[in-house]
Amino acid sequence: MSQLIISVGREFGSGGRVIAEALAKRFDIPIYDRHLITEIANKTGMSPEEIEKLNEAPNSRLISRRVRGFSNSIEDNIAEMQFDFIRKKAESGESFVVVGRCSETKLKDFSGLVSLFILGDMDAKIKRVMEVYEMNEHDAKSFIEKKDKKRKRYHNYHVHMHWGDSRLYDLSINSSRLGIDGTIDYLEKYIRARMGE
């Protein structure tokens, strides 16, 4: 496997981003997450904060419309720009890790793709969000639900199959079972096996 593309879908609070970063380090390849926002900000002249707000956000159906693949929605266009960006990177033969962005579907034609979905037990996710964002339990739970609802709507708008459906990914894994580090080790082994090492 000359090209390795690791696509990481994740539930909020499952540690998906941290796992993606660790995998990028272990395989010594770049990660596209925050970088994508900077890239789009540079291209559009919008601030990274503005892009962040619209990033992985579903459009508002009542005020947006699609005509022959074109959309007036800024959210849709930002999503399309990110899909184009990762597709071009993949076409260039580069190996990388990409977080979210429907990448498990958008890059499915590339043989080097390993698609992962990281989920977690609600209790573990709440605990993690309480620590990272310094929130109480109630706020952490609603924050998780809000974020996941947004990701789900975004994903299901751009892709026909459902976000988190195991049939979409090579491997879906609950990070609460082995812990974040254990999950990273396990995924590394899986990816190396896929690479034929």
Binding site: T44, R65, V67, S71, N72, I74
Partner: peptide
């Protein structure tokens, strides 16, 4: 409005894809 006619959708989309997003 940006959704009133097909030309509006296409024009605003071409602008956005080239780095010139047009809000409502």
């Amino acid at each position: 409005t940006p959704i009133g006619a097909s030309a509006n959708v296409v024009g605003t989309s071409v602008a956005a894809k080239n780095g010139y997003p047009i809000s409502w």
